[in-house]
Amino acid sequence: MAEVSVKEGVETRDWIELKRKPVADIGFDETVKNLTTEKIEKVVNAVLNIGKNAARFMAPLETCIHCALCSTACHWYLSHDKDPTYAPVAKVKMTLWELIKRKGKVSPEFMKQVARIVFCECNLCRRCSMYCPFGLDIAYQLGMVRRICFILGLVPQNILDQTHSLSATLNQLWLTQGDWIDTMQWQEEEVRAEIKNVRIPIDKEGADVMWCPLGTEPKVATYHIARTAKIMNVAGIDWTVSAQDGWDSANMGMFIRDMETMQRVVRGIYDNAMRLKIKRVVLTE
């Protein structure tokens, strides 16, 4: 890969390389081997071209005065003894501005660092936007970079797997419909030891409330289901859960900016709510 870069006239080490503890993640280490500068260039320019038509993307680029007043808003910056490379504006600088400056002609190693910055050193919590005198949506910009990384496949393995699961089953942890219904019935039985005649109504049409748990709840944290069943029953709520796929309120597609999966997950929930003629939806996440 290095040969290709040199031929293209791209310096592989002319960007600031961060000194971070190396973390092994197949999602980064393996996919980066399949990348070339041409591939990256193509993806970056495709995403940035969409960005050029977006005011939310362009306005911050032309407004940011590089005052670094956002830095103290970031918990990463404060947690690392005010290391300037963790400041929000620095993260934008090292990722987006660099990609724009080079028009996407960057080496795979650079992209790997970009992916680490946007996925593993930023939570898109929007606190920096609250502390920016201009109210620039830094989270949106880093989200665009996440989108570039996602299309390139440079995503931490765990979250990518969960997104794949969402796109295949509309839940986060590869649960089948049978597992899901089974878990609900099992929990109903468990809670009956404490509270008389507890019901977890599945697919009840016309209920007031549809509850959408997180995929982890039926898989590893069933006590959440038990507690919710207790609360709902004691309060006498007319509630239900959906039997069909689209009961999971986790949306990993949103985190890695896989818009397509993200839309399908949201749509799945609304579809179920419409199908069951639900009045309100309670989403755990």
Partner: peptide, 20 residues
């Protein structure tokens, strides 16, 4: 140039203020 932050200040601030 980015001196235009004088103009965009009102737009970006308004967007973030409305959004929040």
């Amino acid at each position: 140039t980015r001196l235009g932050h004088m103009l965009y200040f009102f737009l970006t601030r308004a967007y973030m203020g409305s959004d929040q």
